[in-house]
Structure formats: structure tokens, C-alpha cells
């Protein structure tokens, strides 16, 4: 069985899948303070998931969303995955969070091109497109650059995710149809993390150090330093 989880978005999502069939699926939104609850909820839900699976001995692979998304969220998920792996000797597989989001959209509406869009803050989004041949590499861009950043051809595509909802007007201007605000497919499902990891096949799960975060952005301080050095 595969234990999968993701905290790249404001949701804390955890699932266990047994040969593609969900055994457990849970998701927790932000806490009462409006901030992501990953630090408090992730391990609680992982233990529930593992209990539902019948114990750690039943878990063959840990799949973790490696971003792009919230920097702190990525670190909580990846440090948890690596530590569980270190303690239990279970291999870890890294899955793009944008791919998991896109896979959820494809499951909802299989015939179309789908675009998973995660709010990247500062007026930008992380996004990946799936034109029917699997989710592509994530990009980071402003919402009105989305079409160009993904190589065009988004006319009639289905877009979802907290970034698509937040920048609905800009994303729709690129030709996409954006899901209704309340649609469940806007939220990343950890079941998709499990399924994508299962489809990666044997050999894709590694020593824990092999799974690294996809930040897609350097720390501000480095960019400032470069600007000063360059001037």
C-alpha cells in the first residue's frame, strides 16, 4: 500500500491507497486562525491513515507532494516523509503537487485539457497542464502569462485549484474554463499523490534524501543580493 500526503496548498491532505483503491482519505483546511494547519494536523492524519491500512508494516511506499506550493508547507511534508522513512526504512517517492491537482481535474472531466493552478502568492501562480498525455512540468508565472508559460492551446481547457479560483478573471482570459469556487476538485487530493506514485512504477521511490522540494523560486534575499551585485 502507498501512504500519500501533501501540504503544498492550504489543505493538509493524507490518503492510503491499495493497488489504486483508496483505503483512507482525509483532508483538513486551514485552522481557525486562517493559517494552514499542516504542522498540527499532518501527523495526526498520517497515524489515522496508517491505522486504517493495518499498521506501518503494510505501507510499502511513502509518496509526498514535493510542491510547488507554500515553502513552509513543502518543508513540513518533506521533513515528515524523510523522517518516517529514516525511522521505518520505507522508500519515499516525490510527486509534483501541481500534477496531483491536475490529475484530480482529469478524473472529474476526462476528455479535456486540464490545468492545475496553485496560488503562489505575490500575484503569481504555480501551474501544470495535462493535455491527455499526463501532467507536465510545473511553471511559475503571473496569471495573465499562464497561456504563454504553458505553451498555449488552453482554449476550452478546464482549470482548477486555489490559484484558478483566486485569479479567475485572468485565467478565464487565457481561454480556460475555471471550476466553480466551491467545487471539490479545486482542492488537492492525496489519493492522487498515491495514484501518481503508483504509476511511476518500481524504482521511482528512493532513499529519503532523493526527494527534494520544488520551490521554483529562490529566496528573496538571494534575488536582492544579485540585484545589488549586478548594479
Amino acid at each position: 500500500m502507498i501512504l500519500g500526503f501533501d501540504t503544498a496548498t492550504p489543505d493538509t491532505a493524507v490518503a492510503v491507497a491499495d493497488r489504486g483503491e483508496p483505503v483512507f482519505e482525509g483532508s483538513a483546511g486551514p485552522g481557525a486562525d486562517g493559517r494552514p494547519a499542516a504542522a498540527r494536523e499532518l501527523l495526526v492524519m498520517i497515524e489515522e491513515a496508517v491505522a486504517a491500512a493495518g499498521g506501518w508494516n503494510r505501507i510499502a511506499t511513502i509518496a509526498v507532494g514535493r510542491g510547488p506550493g507554500s515553502f513552509t508547507g513543502l518543508r513540513i511534508a518533506i521533513s515528515t516523509a524523510r523522517a518516517l522513512s529514516q525511522a521505518r526504512g520505507i522508500p519515499v517517492a516525490g510527486v509534483d503537487s501541481t500534477a496531483a491537482l491536475a490529475a484530480g481535474l482529469r478524473e472529474r472531466d476526462g476528455g479535456r485539457t486540464v490545468v492545475g493552478v496553485i496560488d503562489a502568492r505575490r500575484g503569481e501562480v504555480f501551474a501544470a497542464v495535462d493535455r491527455g498525455d499526463g501532467p507536465g512540468e510545473p511553471v511559475v508565472c503571473t496569471p495573465d502569462e499562464l497561456g504563454a508559460a504553458l505553451g498555449g492551446g488552453l482554449e476550452g481547457a478546464l482549470a482548477g485549484g486555489d490559484g484558478a479560483v483566486r485569479f479567475r478573471a485572468e485565467i478565464e482570459a487565457s481561454g480556460c474554463v475555471v471550476l466553480d469556487d466551491e467545487d471539490r476538485a479545486n482542492r488537492l487530493s492525496a489519493r492522487q499523490i498515491c495514484l501518481l506514485a503508483a504509476n511511476m512504477g518500481p524504482g521511482s521511490a528512493h532513499h529519503p534524501a532523493g526527494v527534494t522540494p520544488k520551490y521554483m523560486r529562490r529566496p528573496d534575499a538571494e534575488r536582492w543580493l544579485e540585484r545589488i551585485d549586478g548594479s
Binding site: 504542522a39 501527523l43 497515524e47 513552509t72 521533513s79 515528515t80 516523509a81 523522517a83 518516517l84 525511522a87
Partner: peptide
Amino acid sequence: IGALLVGVSTAKAIAAA
């Protein structure tokens, strides 16, 4: 806080596992 969370997440996961 971001630095603390790496240690706390790691410690909790090792302890729980």
C-alpha cells in the same frame, strides 16, 4: 518559525514511527 518547523516535524515523525 520556519526553521523550528523542520526540526519539530522531523522529531515528531521519528518519535511517532
